[in-house]
């Protein structure tokens, strides 16, 4: 390995850590009315970028209303940062236009690829953790950050397969990414749990293996346990073992903006707000300064 350098984006990019936002939810269209008409106890919302990369109409109108009252983070699923196919120029330009329009606190996507040869499989697909792949992804993150004129945040995905020729654990790959590009990290606690179970890793080692000062967001979600493997379904309550791992993550990373990410079987907003209150109280019990910060 080369000598460690201080992680920072290219000199031309802002390097300030995105602000701590508290406890939020993934914004889902089912909840637009309840959010706009009520005042749910939610500190911020994360939006799926692609849902708003449309020409106009209701989605953008709702987003404008919600962002007038809540901080917003943009979370994409199609950047395909690890793909060996060239970037889709239209996608990047639409992403940049959306970021300019809604001024998110930060922009994130996943450490994955979604397709090659012009095809999009609309999935978050895994890569081998090799030095070759690392160089490739570093160059791609550099390109995107340069293009968007801002550092991005990269999230660990749930993986089901692993490659025999991987040369390092996922956490080392992720650490190198952030060290070499200055990108931030979204730690999806559920994804970390799912991947660790499927591959027989130690989830605690994952948490200890990524640099604490680069993690700017947590995702919490539920999954489907099939005994021989866990599938990341995002359609259920956060299970106990994910809450346990969340405690370990709070312990190591400190105050980190957190959301509950529910993509399927979406319950009423109030149910998610209640689940979010659990996350909040776990973190506030461990970090009393958060409770004081909220009271002030």
């Amino acid at each position: 390995m080369t000598a460690a350098k201080v992680s920072k984006p290219k000199a031309s990019l802002p390097s300030a850590r995105p602000p701590y936002l508290g406890f939020g939810l993934g914004l889902r269209p089912q909840h637009y009315t309840d959010i706009i008409e009520g005042s749910p106890d939610v500190d911020w919302f994360e939006v799926i970028s692609e849902n708003y990369m449309v020409p106009g109409g209701q989605p953008l109108r709702m987003l404008d209303k919600i962002r007038a009252r809540y901080p917003i983070v943009m979370h994409g699923v199609s950047l395909s940062i690890a793909s060996t196919a060239p970037f889709n120029a239209q996608y990047l330009s639409d992403l940049k236009a959306l970021a300019e329009r809604i001024e998110p606190r930060f922009v994130s996507d996943h450490l994955c690829w979604t397709g090659v040869h012009g095809v999009n499989l609309h999935d978050l697909l895994p890569i081998p953790y090799t030095r070759e792949a690392l160089d490739h992804v570093v160059a791609r993150i550099d390109h995107v950050q340069e293009y968007l004129q801002r550092p991005i945040a990269i999230e660990n995905v749930s993986t089901y397969i692993q490659f025999a020729h991987s040369e390092m654990p996922e956490w080392e790959f992720i650490s190198e990414l952030t060290r070499r590009t200055g990108c931030w990290l979204v730690f999806d606690v559920n994804n970390g749990f799912v991947s660790a179970f499927n591959h027989g890793w130690d989830a605690q080692a994952f948490i200890e293996g990524i640099p604490a000062d680069r993690v700017v967001q947590f995702h919490l979600a539920g999954h489907e346990h099939n005994m021989s493997h866990i599938i990341d379904t995002h359609d259920a309550l956060v299970p106990d073992e994910v809450w346990d791992l969340y405690r370990a993550a709070v312990e190591r990373f400190g105050p980190v903006s957190t959301i509950i990410e529910r993509d399927d079987d979406i319950p009423p907003l109030a149910d998610l707000v209640a689940e979010l209150a659990t996350a909040r109280s776990i973190a506030e019990d461990m970090l009393p300064e958060l409770r004081k910060r909220r009271a002030s």
Binding site: D123, I161, F163, A164, F197, N198, G200, H229, I231
Partner: peptide, 22 residues
Amino acid sequence: AALADGAHASRDTLLGVYRQAY
């Protein structure tokens, strides 16, 4: 040929997760 087996399931089963999900 490039995959390793999972901790609790074979690589065929785990590759199947991606095929079915697609």
